[in-house]
Design a protein around this nucleic acid. Sequence first.
DNA 1: CGTGTTTGACCCGCGC
DNA 2: GCGCGGGTCAAACACG
Length: 296
Amino acid sequence: MTWLDESLGFDLNANPLLHHDQTTVSDKSLEEELNRMSAENKSLRQMVVEMLNKFNTMQNHLTDFISKQGPVNLMTSTTTTTPRKRKAPYDDEIKDNDINGITSSNIMDSNSISDDENSWKKPREYLKSTKILRTYTKIDPSDTSLIVKDGYQWKKYGQKVTKDNPSPRAYFKCSFAPTCPVKKKVQKSIEDRSVLIATYEGEHNHSLHVEGTFGSTTGVALGSFASSISSHLHPTLTLDLTQSGLKCNDDGKISSPKIGSLGLQRYLIEQMASSIAQDPIFKASLASAINFRKSS
DNA sequence: CGTGTTTGACCCGCGC
DNA sequence: GCGCGGGTCAAACACG
């Protein structure tokens, strides 16, 4: 039993298609072997679909839970109403927050902070349609690089020392796609110098280059499913629990701004299933596992 | 030489 | 209207 089996309730041993009749193997033709392999691929594909279904169910439960809990802000209990005097968009909130226990990848939905008192000189209409997301990343306090690895490609276009925080704030634009409107601000927390606060504005209008997470399927926007699986592969992930999208942070390579429609999910299932089925590494691993079972 | 970063100047919204 | 301060621009610089 692996983490996959445990977490998803699968038991590969229980799959009859993965058992091989030792007495007949030597008599079977190559063609029959191929047929069996394709049948196994089929069953694996089904497992992937089932996996996604379970993930979606879990996510729905989580969404329900969060919605019952009220505001989605994971780290802030209240947002105090302050005078309209301009200030750093998150410094005051940080003071209200309990930074203790923040991992490298806690994340906070900022739909709640895209309200008036947190506007960045932006018109209200703009703010209403712009998704603002904040992540907290644990770093070495002596590290002054202000770099938050999130899988996207950023171009730094400015740096400022703000009034309320002695640490400089770095401004980044997404340079992955020329038309991508997403901007990012990174600044050390005033409370905890070992915490980097990255604030994302807008939504990416392009796919994310997935850095080899799924073997040969790099460059495919795998969306929520890839994020869910990669969350097992990358221990320091950011899960945006408050939105329908998932986000990896720190060393995670994936950021899916938004889970798409049912059709998109279906498409992603197909992509994942075919990717796994066609992955030679996966095939080889599977074959060796089967051979191991045969010989044991 | 191309690309990315730095940094001072400038822009602009907001409060007084 | 003025000053403050966050955000952006763009020339200079660094680096491979």
